[in-house]
Simulated scan of single mutants.
Amino acid sequence: MRIALDGKRALVTGSTGGIGFAAAKGLAAAGATVIVNGRTAERVEAAIRDIRLEVPEAKLEALPLDLAAADGCAAAAERIPAVDILVNNLGIFELKPFFEIDDADWERFFQANVMSGVRLSRSYLKGMMERGWGRIVFISSESALNIPADMVHYGFTKTAQLAVSRGLAKVARGSGVTVNAVLPGPTASEGVSAMLKPMAEEQGISFEEAGAAFVKAERSSSVIQRLASVEEVANMIVYVCSEQASATSGAALRVDGGVVDTIA
């Protein structure tokens, strides 16, 4: 299967690192013009340089805005009136005991993880429907189904993304636009790498071994028994953005390594 997205314009939020960066790179390799987003111009330009090192022919644009804020989303819609593909990847997480999560934390997580995607979808979905083609993808998590006790506020927002994506798929029914959610499991993103590398060095083991030990201890139901790479998650994102995925909409697509212990 050759995925070709030539002529398509894609916005990937939070794409200066991790899964978002890998998705931006994958979409660019498939021929899409990709709008790279981060909070600072420096990080966005660095990400664009890094993508071009691996995909020299990449067509890239910069969007240095904080899309966790309402004014950032409004500015994005003004600067970029239309896109064909919207990947709502922007998100934050932290380990925090429930009784220490105050109202400000709940609001911060809701704004970043849920409302950023809601606002941008509101800006771009109607145009996609009018043109008869479009893809919206919410990057959720297996934590949407396995709510973690040590970050309930994060799990709540990931579940909310599933509800929004399913609802928007119904809004777009019959239009040629698909809306889906992708659910990564334990992944070797920047945040996880930062947590595990000191452990690997202290124990004198490789990062891969540390990742496998983490998965076995913290996500023992994993079928692959290791961390996924960001590229493995991005492969699903690129596919669901493709012409070939035209019959997939309203779905929660798991790239969790089998962590969620269900066949449905």
Rank of each mutant, 00 (worst) to 15 (best):
Leu5Pro: 00
Asp6Thr: 14
Lys8Phe: 05
Val12Phe: 08
Val12Gly: 08
Ser15His: 05
Phe21Trp: 01
Ala22Glu: 01
Ala22Cys: 07
Ala22Ile: 01
Ala23Ile: 00
Lys25His: 06
Leu27Ala: 01
Ala28Phe: 00
Ala29Met: 08
Ala30Trp: 02
Ala32Tyr: 00
Val34Asn: 02
Ile35Cys: 06
Ile35Asp: 04
Arg43Trp: 04
Glu45Ile: 04
Glu45Tyr: 08
Ala46Trp: 02
Ala46Gln: 13
Ala46Asp: 09
Ala46Pro: 07
Ala47Cys: 11
Ile48Cys: 09
Ile51Tyr: 00
Ile51Arg: 02
Glu54Met: 11
Glu54Trp: 10
Glu54Thr: 13
Pro56Asp: 09
Glu57Asp: 06
Ala58Leu: 08
Ala58Gly: 03
Leu60Pro: 07
Leu60Thr: 01
Glu61Phe: 02
Glu61Cys: 08
Ala62Lys: 04
Leu63Ser: 10
Leu63Asn: 10
Asp66Met: 05
Leu67Val: 14
Ala68Cys: 13
Ala70Pro: 11
Asp71Cys: 06
Ala76Arg: 08
Ala76Phe: 04
Glu78Phe: 13
Ile80Lys: 08
Ala82Cys: 14
Val83Ser: 01
Val83Glu: 04
Val87Thr: 01
Asn88Cys: 13
Asn89Thr: 00
Ile92Leu: 10
Phe93Gln: 11
Glu94Ile: 10
Leu95Tyr: 15
Pro97Asn: 09
Phe99Gln: 15
Ile101Asp: 14
Asp102Trp: 10
Asp102Gly: 03
Ala104Cys: 09
Asp105Ser: 10
Phe109Ser: 11
Phe110His: 15
Gln111Leu: 09
Ala112Arg: 12
Asn113Phe: 09
Asn113Trp: 04
Val114Ala: 04
Ser116Gly: 05
Gly117Phe: 03
Arg122Asn: 13
Met129Gln: 14
Met129Cys: 12
Arg131Gln: 12
Gly132Phe: 03
Ile136Asn: 09
Ser140Thr: 04
Ser140Glu: 09
Ser141Ala: 09
Glu142Leu: 14
Ser143Thr: 15
Ala149Ile: 14
Met151Phe: 13
Val152Met: 07
His153Tyr: 05
Gly155Ile: 02
Thr157Gly: 05
Thr157Val: 05
Thr157Ala: 02
Thr159His: 15
Ala160Val: 03
Gly167Trp: 09
Gly167Cys: 10
Ala169Ile: 00
Lys170Tyr: 15
Ala172Thr: 02
Gly176Gln: 07
Gly176Asn: 10
Val177Thr: 00
Val177Glu: 12
Val179Gln: 06
Thr187Ile: 06
Thr187Arg: 03
Ser193Tyr: 15
Ala194Cys: 12
Leu196Arg: 04
Lys197Trp: 13
Lys197Phe: 12
Ala200Thr: 02
Ala200Val: 06
Glu202Val: 13
Gln203Leu: 12
Ile205Phe: 06
Glu208Met: 04
Glu208Leu: 05
Glu209Arg: 03
Ala210Val: 07
Phe214Arg: 05
Val215His: 07
Ala217Phe: 11
Glu218Thr: 15
Arg219Glu: 15
Ser220Trp: 14
Ser222Asp: 00
Arg226Lys: 13
Leu227Ser: 08
Ala228Asp: 08
Ala228Trp: 01
Ser229Gln: 00
Glu231Met: 07
Glu232Arg: 05
Val233Ala: 01
Val233His: 03
Ala234Val: 00
Ile237Arg: 04
Cys241Ile: 07
Cys241Tyr: 07
Cys241Glu: 04
Gln244Asn: 08
Ser246Ala: 12
Ala247Tyr: 13
Ala247Met: 13
Thr248Glu: 06
Ala251Tyr: 10
Val255Asp: 04
Gly258Arg: 00
